[in-house]
C-alpha cells in the first residue's frame, strides 16, 4: 500500500485530517425529529465551543420520521460529552452520543477524476488504483473516474499516491457514515420508553 502523505501543507491540496495534540477523533451520532432548522442549531453548538466539524452527514434513519446526523470532530472527552449534552438539550433532538473509532463501523466514499492521457502514459496509475482496491467507473479519452469506498486513511492514501503522480483533476470525499458496534439499539430503547410515557400521559391529557 502506498505511504500516506502526512505533510498536507506542503502540497497545498491534500485534505488529510490534521490531528490536534491531545485530541481524539470522535464520531457523534445524533437522532432528531424531522423538523426544519435543526441542522444549524446543532452546528451552532460546535461553533460556540470552538470545535471544528471534520465531516458531517445527514439523512433519514431506519426509524420513520427520525433523522440521523453523523458528525466527526477532534476534541477531548469532556468536550465530546458537553457537546452531546448541549445538542441533546435542543427540544427536537432525540438523542446524541459520541463514539471513539473502535466503537463504530466506519465508511466513507470518494471519487477521483484523473487525466486519461496521463494514466495511459504512466503504468503506475492503474497499479495504484488496483492495489487500493478502487474501481475505475468511467473512462473516456479526456478523463477517468475512480471510485474508492473505505476508511478515511485508505481513501487519503489513494488520493495522495495519485496526486504525487500529478494525474488528479478533481477529488471529493463524502462525510463519514457509520453504525455502532454495540449490541444494544439505544435509540429504539429510548423511543420505546418514551412511548410508554406517552401512553401514561394520554390518561391525563392529549399528547403530541
Amino acid at each position: 500500500m502506498a505511504e500516506q502523505h502526512n505533510d498536507c501543507k506542503s502540497c497545498g491540496k491534500c485534505t488529510s485530517y490534521e490531528q490536534e495534540e491531545g485530541k481524539t477523533l470522535y464520531t457523534m451520532l445524533i437522532y432528531s425529529e424531522n423538523t426544519p432548522g435543526l441542522l444549524s442549531q446543532i452546528t451552532a453548538v460546535f461553533t460556540r465551543r470552538q470545535v471544528n466539524i471534520e465531516s458531517l452527514n445527514v439523512c433519514a434513519s431506519s426509524t420513520p420520521g427520525v433523522h440521523k446526523y453523523t458528525i466527526t470532530c477532534y476534541c477531548d472527552e469532556d468536550m465530546a460529552q458537553m457537546l452531546t449534552k448541549q445538542i441533546e438539550k435542543k427540544i427536537d433532538v432525540i438523542q446524541a452520543n459520541y463514539y471513539t473509532e473502535d466503537e463504530v463501523f466506519i465508511l466513507e466514499t470518494s471519487l477521483v477524476k484523473i487525466s486519461t492521457p496521463m494514466m495511459l502514459e504512466n503504468r503506475d496509475v492503474s497499479r495504484i488504483v488496483r492495489i487500493h482496491g478502487a474501481h475505475i467507473v468511467e473512462v473516456n479519452p479526456t478523463y477517468a473516474t475512480v471510485e474508492k469506498t473505505g476508511i478515511t486513511s485508505d481513501i487519503l492514501s489513494l488520493y495522495n499516491s495519485l496526486n504525487e503522480l500529478g494525474v488528479v483533476l478533481q477529488f471529493v470525499r463524502s462525510g463519514r457514515i457509520c453504525i455502532t458496534k454495540s449490541r444494544v439499539e439505544h435509540l429504539d430503547e429510548f423511543l420505546n420508553e418514551r412511548e410508554i410515557r406517552r401512553a401514561e400521559n394520554c390518561n391525563t391529557g392529549i399528547s403530541e
Binding site: S32, E33, I91, D92, V93, I94, L191, R194, E195, R197, R198, N201, T204, G205, I206, S207, E208
Partner: peptide, 10 residues
C-alpha cells in the same frame, strides 16, 4: 383547541 403535554424528544 389542543393541549401539548408530551414531546417524545424532550
Amino acid at each position: 383547541s389542543k393541549k401539548v403535554d408530551f414531546i417524545r424528544s424532550y
